Simulated scan of single mutants.
Amino acid sequence: MKYNSIEQIIKNNRAWVAQKQAQDRSYFEEMASGQKPPYLYIGCSDSRLALTRFTGTEPGELFVHRNIANQVSLTDMNFLAILNYAIIHLEVKHIIVAGHYGCGGIKAALEGRTIGIIDNWVNPIREIYLEKKDEIDALPTQEQRLNRLAEFNVVLQVKNIYQTSIMGQSLEQQKAPEVHGWVVDIKTGLITDLEVSTKQWELRSLSLAGF
């Protein structure tokens, strides 16, 4: 694959700005006035996932948090601060947790490989695999096993969102955003909604918030 040079990236930027201004002279002035995105997107850091291209969205629509294998860590202050800001200040209407097929973090977790400091990040996914081992190992191909673990990982991260205090508070106040679990297939470019049922977790979060 041929990559752009730094100089070409700057040229691309200039061309994009000119195109936007030709379409709408006030485009950047309006964007600079503030943000009110309807979506918080929690996804993997994989460089192949160009969010605005995969989703057809414009700058200002997605508030984004990305890390290795789209983890929702209850001890990650960076994530918790972003979640708090998205819900309280931006008042996002939807939270999207998006994993993807062909994820390196998922592969490392399934195979139990040691990859240095990233092990600390991948270990929770390894625990998912060990819990669902019989079901995953029963699948006929390695690709199918990896894909299924990627899906299980998304479901757990959706559940983890409901374990946060900020989500419990927003549910109690009936101001909580909807939470969605997606997986992206890089081979096809298509997004699949896993249609994760979150009602059970919502009820659990409400009970914890009132404890």
Results as ranks from 00 to 15, higher is better:
100 H>F: 05
114 T>M: 05
76 D>V: 05
127 E>F: 11
62 L>I: 14
123 N>Y: 14
69 A>T: 08
119 D>N: 14
96 I>W: 02
99 G>E: 01
69 A>F: 02
65 H>E: 07
135 E>M: 07
126 R>D: 01
157 Q>Y: 03
99 G>K: 01
84 N>L: 09
33 S>E: 14
86 A>S: 15
92 V>E: 00
146 L>C: 13
147 N>P: 01
100 H>W: 08
136 I>P: 03
103 C>M: 03
84 N>A: 09
135 E>Y: 13
151 E>Q: 15
62 L>M: 13
46 D>S: 05
66 R>T: 06
61 E>V: 11
135 E>W: 13
82 I>N: 07
133 K>I: 02
149 L>G: 00
142 Q>V: 13
40 L>F: 09
44 C>A: 03
111 E>W: 02
32 A>Q: 12
105 G>M: 03
42 I>P: 00
38 P>W: 04
101 Y>G: 03
81 A>N: 11
42 I>W: 04
106 I>L: 07
132 K>R: 14
28 F>C: 07
158 V>W: 00
30 E>P: 02
63 F>H: 01
125 I>M: 04
115 I>A: 11
83 L>C: 13
35 Q>A: 13
48 R>L: 11
86 A>K: 04
112 G>K: 05
96 I>F: 07
120 N>F: 05
128 I>D: 05
82 I>V: 15
99 G>V: 02
117 I>N: 15
154 V>C: 09
122 V>R: 03
65 H>V: 08
145 R>V: 01
137 D>R: 10
121 W>F: 14
155 V>E: 12
120 N>K: 10
51 L>G: 09
74 L>R: 09
153 N>M: 04
102 G>F: 09
100 H>M: 09
82 I>T: 12
116 G>N: 06
123 N>G: 03
141 T>Y: 12
114 T>D: 15
76 D>R: 04
79 F>V: 07
54 F>I: 15
69 A>I: 02
71 Q>D: 12
31 M>D: 09
61 E>W: 12
72 V>W: 03
83 L>D: 01
130 L>G: 01
32 A>V: 10
140 P>Y: 12
74 L>D: 08
72 V>L: 10
96 I>T: 00
105 G>A: 06
76 D>L: 07
145 R>S: 04
36 K>M: 13
143 E>G: 08
95 I>L: 11
55 T>C: 09
37 P>C: 07
97 V>Q: 00
40 L>W: 05
147 N>G: 02
73 S>G: 12
59 P>R: 06
67 N>F: 06
88 I>C: 13
148 R>A: 04
144 Q>D: 12
74 L>W: 07
150 A>W: 02
77 M>Q: 14
66 R>C: 04
149 L>H: 03
120 N>G: 12
153 N>F: 05
100 H>A: 13
119 D>T: 07
